[in-house]
């Protein structure tokens, strides 16, 4: 008898997941302690099935390093007019936005756990993937883990500044938060890191300063050498478009309206017409917040199995039937 079979009777305790219980039970916090514990055990059993196996995560490494190598190649190819800049622009924009996804797996050590031989590749992916965004891995990892610890806390969630009442204002805010005098995005991250003040936070601030100053020096040197259009189309615009895309789809969309701070209500299940891939798997973000060790490409499958358990917990899964 396997674990799931053992736990089957408890599923019946979940409302709408089988035979009705003798005593009607509510959802979410109204569940009794035994039911909550049993549901959690079942949830964990499903999550374990989909937990990342670093030995199978090599496509993330190959894609990240391959895209980075291509992006580097775009520079001489664009400067020598071998590659049309518009082609480089489209590809660089995809790399900028997509890079965050692979980096995100590295932030959660899903590509290589500490102390394993895959760890090198985990860190390599993290370091390289967000260079186009001018967003160092050390800062990205610290801020993202803070986001997990304090999701939707107005004071402590580094991503809370993405909150907006609607999708149009959310897109606008992705731009507004990057403005020099606005306390949003990376400016907000810097302030949080200064407040944290640990050696790791100081190192993240140092890395940010080096990457920002280094990239600006590169921008200025290239621009005054006659390659401003190349910089604009291979780095500057892709970065801005990529950051807005990420902020909207990875931060605003799955957390709107940012009111819940509990385990089961700090994200929302939603459906979007642009689909699973263009929304970067964020429709199933609830699974990620519950089990960050489940890699992005498997959250959909984990969600399908967890759906009855999530509904029993009071999660509104009506937007996604499967």
């Amino acid at each position: 008898m396997n674990e799931m079979t053992t736990l089957q009777p408890a599923v019946a305790l979940a409302p709408g997941a089988g035979d009705a219980p003798a005593i009607p039970l509510g959802a979410g916090n109204e569940l009794d302690a035994h039911t909550r514990r049993t549901l959690l055990q079942q949830e964990r059993a499903i999550a374990r099935k989909y937990t990342s196996d670093p030995k199978k995560m090599w496509p993330y490494t190959v894609i990240t390093l391959g895209c980075f190598a291509l992006w580097l190649a775009f520079w001489p190819l664009g400067m020598m007019d071998v590659l049309p800049l518009w082609v480089g622009f489209i590809a660089s924009t995809v790399f900028a936005a997509g890079g965050y996804i692979t980096s995100h797996e590295a932030m959660h050590s899903n590509i290589g756990r500490p102390g394993t031989k895959e760890r090198f590749w985990n860190e390599a992916v993290g370091q390289v993937a967000t260079i186009i965004l001018i967003f160092p891995f050390s800062m990205a990892r610290m801020m993202h883990l803070h986001h997990h610890y304090y999701t939707n806390d107005p004071e402590k969630d580094p991503d809370y500044t993405d909150a907006a009442p609607g999708k149009y204002s959310a897109w606008y805010k992705t731009w507004l938060n990057r403005q020099p005098g606005v306390d949003g995005s990376i400016h907000h991250y810097k302030r949080i890191l200064e407040r944290i003040g640990t050696p790791a936070a100081k190192a993240a601030l140092r890395d940010t300063m080096i990457l920002q100053l280094g990239s600006m020096a590169f921008f200025f040197a290239m621009a005054w050498s006659g390659y401003a259009m190349e910089v604009a189309l291979l780095w500057w615009l892709p970065r801005h478009i990529g950051l807005s895309y990420i902020r909207f789809w990875l931060s605003w969309a799955p957390h709107h309206p940012r009111t819940g701070t509990g385990r089961y209500d700090n994200t929302r299940v939603f459906k979007t017409w642009i689909g699973h891939y263009l929304s970067m798997g964020m429709q199933y973000h609830v699974v990620h917040h519950l089990y960050p060790e489940v890699p992005n490409h498997l959250t959909r499958y984990a969600y399908r199995e967890m759906k009855p358990l999530l509904e029993a917990r009071g999660v509104d899964c009506s937007a996604l039937k499967d």
Binding site: F219, F220, A228
Partner: peptide, 28 residues
């Protein structure tokens, strides 16, 4: 000094990047 450098960065960006970008767009 670094904070001052970042404070003035938009101005430097205007001179260091936007100015040559406009010039090269005109020429293009």
């Amino acid at each position: 000094a670094i904070k001052q450098l970042f404070y003035w960065m938009p101005f430097l960006f205007g001179i260091g990047f936007i100015a040559p970008l406009i010039a090269q767009m005109l020429e293009y």
